[in-house]
């Protein structure tokens, strides 16, 4: 899932400091699961902003709505009526949701309440970790199911580098060395010989370097 975290309240308040009425839009997708932009967080943020503005003697009116998914126009359309009389929309979705909302309501001031961090999952309750580098050409079959593109701080394909020690990455004692994990896993699987193959330079054009990507499935296109 996409993991996102809330921006500091002050930063969000500053974005709407000249507004009298705002709509806060949550998302029932990934950001609900990672506890940053679901219905509950939307209500809490709405109250927090109102209280803050009241204390500043500049009251703010808020309305809230939580879309099933903000990355889908049909679910955003459900709030067409609500946006009419607000000065701004605060989206508690990932960066995708914010853009869909901004695209639909082109005359409205749309601001992000979250920082979209990465795609990953939780390790224990309250802690999420990045797992996929979205490179567009998966190599997990070569690396024992551990992604070196994003979990190695240098994205190297022929690791581990000389900074790997005691299973940790040179950047921090709190960061596992992805290549140490890969090595251990391949050893367990009896496939260490696979690590002796020199992995060729990656084609990064399938990654972010080729401009915005598009995925097409001809068989499901309607019309």
């Amino acid at each position: 899932m996409i993991v996102a975290q809330q921006k500091p309240l002050q930063e969000i308040a500053d974005m709407v400091s000249d507004c009298k009425k705002v709509l806060l839009v949550g998302c029932a997708g990934c950001v609900t699961v990672c506890l940053s932009g679901g219905e509950k967080e939307t209500e809490v943020m709405s109250s927090a902003l109102r209280i803050k503005r009241r204390l500043e003697e500049n009251p703010l009116t808020t309305v809230t709505f939580t879309a099933t998914r903000q990355c889908d126009p049909e679910y955003i359309a459900e709030m067409d009526e609500m946006v009419k009389d607000v000065d701004a929309i605060i989206s508690l979705a990932c960066g995708v949701g914010v853009q869909y909302v901004a695209e639909r309501y082109s005359d409205k001031w749309v601001v992000p309440a979250l920082n979209t961090n990465f795609i990953g999952g939780s390790t224990v309750h309250g802690i999420w970790e990045e797992k996929c580098g979205l490179c567009g050409d998966c190599v997990l079959h070569k690396t024992g199911g551990i992604c070196p593109i994003i979990r190695c701080s240098k994205s190297i394909l022929n690791g581990p580098c000389g900074g790997s020690q005691y299973g940790k990455c040179e950047i921090s004692k709190d960061t596992d060395c992805a290549w140490a994990l890969i090595y251990e896993r391949m050893k367990t699987l009896g496939k260490l010989n696979k690590l002796m193959e020199i992995q060729p330079p990656k084609d990064w054009s399938t990654s972010r370097d080729g401009g915005p990507r598009r995925a097409t499935r001809e068989d499901v296109i309607i019309g």
């Binding site: 701080s153 240098k154 994205s155 190297i156 394909l157 022929n158 690791g159 580098c161 020199i198 992995q199 060729p200 330079p201 990064w204």
Partner: peptide, 9 residues
């Protein structure tokens, strides 16, 4: 950082 290629490559 870049790491377009790694040292091995």
């Amino acid at each position: 950082n870049v790491y377009d290629v790694d040292s091995m490559q």
